[in-house]
């Protein structure tokens, strides 16, 4: 995946029984972001695979003051990449 300077990982192990995931996002490379942000902070949030979109969550993070508007695309992309990976893992027979 393209390096956005952001890292998104599962905050809890995925047991594949729930469409809602707990994800954690943090800034790995501040130089890749356009706006200011708080250092060394991880943001944990829920993401529903069926009803949520990465763009929507990124927008909420911007509105909540975690990121500058200009970084919302990078935030959305980071979430989208991780969610795609989780979905692919779930689709594999041995994924869960």
């Amino acid at each position: 995946a393209e390096d956005t300077g952001l890292r998104v990982e599962l905050a809890e192990e995925d047991d594949c029984s729930n469409s809602s995931l707990a994800l954690r996002l943090w800034v790995e490379d501040p130089k890749k972001l356009k706006g200011k942000h708080k250092d060394n902070e991880a943001i944990e949030f829920s993401f529903n695979l069926e009803t949520d979109t990465p763009e929507e969550v990124a927008y909420e993070m911007v509105k909540s003051g975690f990121f500058h508007e200009s970084d919302s695309k990078a935030v959305a992309k980071s979430i989208r990449d991780r969610v795609s990976l989780i979905k692919k893992t779930r689709e594999k027979p041995a994924g869960c």
Binding site: R7, E41, A42, F45, S46, E60, F66
Partner: peptide, 27 residues
């Protein structure tokens, strides 16, 4: 450690915590 919770108007809850040092800049 201190945790901060922010609830967006849409209802989603964001929990802010410090990133463990071991997770920073790992490649």
């Amino acid at each position: 450690s201190s945790l901060t919770q922010v609830v967006h108007s849409a209802g989603r809850r964001f929990i802010v915590s410090p990133v463990p040092e071991s997770r920073l800049r790992e490649s």
